[in-house]
Amino acid sequence: MSRTPRVTVEFYAMARRRAGTDSVLLTAQTVAEALHVVADSFPGLAELSRGPDSSSPYLVSVNAGPFLQDWDTALIDGDRLLILSADAGG
């Protein structure tokens, strides 16, 4: 039986401000599972538990790849999940 991947979640801009930390280490099989853990751990980021939502103020990317619409994306050991403000720019 394979063990659940260990991933690092990195927070940027408003996500960092709401989390109060730069990053957190957790285990999760999918992006959605990781984001639920984040939402449970950091009340300021509770809306991440709602799933992909065009009105969400956050964007999610694995290893700085394309921003994800499909949060069922599987994670592998060592992945880095980036959560950043959807209003990057200005």
């Binding site: 103020p57 700085a64 403000s85 990057a88």
Partner: peptide, 23 residues
Amino acid sequence: GPATAKYRELGTVANLLTFNRLN
């Protein structure tokens, strides 16, 4: 509301680390 929170709380300077992380 949340749509302007970044500008109010951090300002656009918050972009720098994000952009740096995305190369």
